[in-house]
Every structure is written in C-alpha cells, then in structure tokens.
Amino acid sequence: MKQLDLRRFPGFFAITLACVFVLYAPLMVVAVYSFNESTSITRWGGFSLSWYADVFTGPESPKFQRAALNSLIIAVLAGSGATLIATSAAVAMHRAGRFKAKTASFALINLPLMVPEVVTAVASLIFFTAIGFSGGIGTILLAHLAFCIPFAYLPIAARMQSISDSYEQAAMDLYATPKEAFRLILLPLMMPGIFSGFLLAFIISLDDFLITNFVKGAGVETLPTAIFGAVKQGIKPNIMAISTLMLGVSVVFVTLSWLIGRSGQKTQ
C-alpha cells in the first residue's frame, strides 16, 4: 500500500501561493505605478522618477513633509515612552513575586488591545475636550502613549519569560546591589526584547489613523491623516510615490526587527 504523506493536503500549497499573491499584488501594483511617467494614473507612460521628485519638491511637498515630521516625532516619543513604561511593568510582573492586583495589572496592560480602536478614539476625544486640551501633537502623543504600551510589553515580557533570575542571584551573592544587578545583568539580557518592543510600538504609532484623526484638532496632520485627506480627493500619483516610500521603510523595519530577534535567540 502506498504510504500516505499525512503532512500534505492537496491544494494547500496552491492556496498559500494565492494568499501570498493577494497580499502582495496591491502593494506591488502601486509601487510599479509610482514610477509611471503619465499623469493619468491608469495608463502606463514609461518609467520616470518625477513623482518622487514631486514628493520632495512639488507644491504639496511642504504639507507632506510637515506631516511626516509630526508622525516621526510622535512615533519616536510615544514608542520610547511606551517602551520605558512596559519595561518597568515587565520587571514588576516577572521579578516582584506575587502581589496584590497582579491580575488586574495584567488586564490593564492588555486593555488597549481589547477595546476597539474606534471606541478608544471616541473616548480620547471626549476626554481631551472635557479637560480642555485642544487637539494637537500633545493630545496625539498622549493617546498613542497609552495604546502603544501593550505592543511594547509583548516582546519584552516574552523575553523575560526565558531569563532565569540565577544570574542576578549570583551577582547579588557577590555583593551587587539590586540596582546594580538590574543595570549590569538583567537590562542587557532584556535588551533584544526591549528593542523589538520599541520597534513594534514605533510602527504601531506610525500606522495609526483612526485615533489620530479624532484627537488631532484642526490644522495638525500626521502622515496617515494627510494621506487620507488627499485620497478623499482621488488617488494621485504622488500618493503612490509616498506609499511606496512608506512601504520601503516598513520592510526595512521588519527585516531589522527580525534580524535582531534572531540574534537575540542565538545569545540565549
């Protein structure tokens, strides 16, 4: 009797290829058309970099550059802030034994993942209006800080899970203070997790449209809200060039995070 290969199902490979095709086709098409000479976005008029030039020097470029700068500032600050807070929380959850409100704290850390984004957006808008904060970079930053915490926490906690406390115990047996044991032993061991956590929080902040759009206030734009506003007027080629640039940035970030994650596994 012919041996049945139990790991294989007919058609699964084809579905996987179809899946990858569907995931990449829209992005690839936009990337290709961003190099289109023609101003008509549907007809191909030959290869050109003119829309990239337009992004950096064209009439709309100051608007998009300002928006990109805002996005970057917010993502760096919210990402670092969330990473610091999440690192501190991960140390508490993994090095402070049992304590009151441990389960509640765990639920709180994960709360931003459970509340639908549009609800967070509405709640933030109401809150900032009620306390009289007018919308701007500050309100966007504070809202991002809160919902980035779980994303920074996930990789850090995953890393902590596999760090035994025996190294710190050994250091303290050799008269290191708890602070020294943290700075010299635990923190370096946590570093790959902290770095992945930062990258994740950074990308999540950069990616956000809905919450930003609710709390931003008039006149302040981040890259996603600026693109959304432009797309509402129709998809123009300069939008495709910006999209392709952002696609490039994302790919670089993911690859970086993947390589760091891999080196982190090797050093364990």
């Binding site: 829209p26 976005i41 950069l206 990616d207 939008i239 999209s243 696609l247």
Partner: peptide, 14 residues
C-alpha cells in the same frame, strides 16, 4: 507591517 491606510488605498487602486 505596511501602514493599514496604504494597504487599503492600494486595494482600492487595484
């Protein structure tokens, strides 16, 4: 990891 808005716009374009 590509911006959700950009993915959705790409789908619309396609």
């Amino acid at each position: 990891w590509v911006n959700l808005l950009i993915r959705t716009v790409s789908m619309k374009f396609l």
